[in-house]
Amino acid sequence: MFSNTANMFKQTTNLINALNKLKQNLSFVKSNVNNDKTLVIYFLSNAYSDFNLFKTIYLSVTPGDQKIEAFLQEFEKFFVDANKYLVFITEDSIEDKLHKEVVLSINELERYLLNQLDMYR
């Protein structure tokens, strides 16, 4: 039992780290959108990689969690529509609202995982 608990603690920590990297890359997208489109595409690509890392860790550890499943479905659509995101993000008012919604969703899942992490301590 101990090794399973220790493993869940480690994997939940890995999930949280992947979310933080995702959030960081999306912030870089936001901050560079008016300066350098190449950097924006680079950071959006990194964010998608972070999302896929999160998804892979989740599916290998604890598939079936409703809250995480909903997050994965929402963000799968988000990255499929990445071109729409880039169009929206260039319009100042829409960009800020969209970015805030995305970060809020990530933060909610992060709080949920932190609560899970407490259970494994």
Rank of each mutant, 00 (worst) to 15 (best):
F2M: 05
F2G: 08
S3P: 01
S3Y: 15
S3K: 02
S3M: 09
T5R: 05
A6N: 06
A6M: 11
A6H: 03
K10M: 12
T12H: 00
N14H: 14
L15K: 06
I16T: 10
I16M: 07
I16P: 04
I16F: 14
A18R: 02
N20Q: 05
N20L: 10
L22D: 01
K23M: 06
K23H: 09
Q24T: 09
N25D: 07
F28N: 09
V29Q: 00
V29G: 03
K30A: 15
K30Q: 08
N32I: 00
K37F: 11
T38S: 08
L39F: 14
V40H: 00
V40L: 00
I41Y: 06
Y42I: 02
N46G: 12
F51I: 12
N52M: 09
N52S: 09
N52V: 15
F54L: 13
T56C: 14
T56I: 03
I57T: 14
Y58A: 04
Y58E: 03
L59K: 12
L59F: 08
V61A: 13
T62G: 10
P63Y: 05
K67V: 08
K67C: 06
K67L: 05
I68N: 00
F71Q: 04
L72D: 02
F75C: 03
F79L: 06
V80T: 13
V80F: 14
D81T: 14
K84M: 15
Y85Q: 01
F88T: 07
T90H: 07
E91D: 12
E91W: 07
D92N: 15
S93D: 05
I94F: 07
E95L: 03
D96E: 14
L98F: 11
L98K: 15
H99D: 06
K100T: 12
E101D: 10
E101S: 08
L104W: 02
I106K: 15
N107W: 04
N107E: 15
L109W: 01
E110G: 00
E110R: 10
Y112H: 07
Q116E: 03
D118R: 15
D118A: 11
M119D: 11
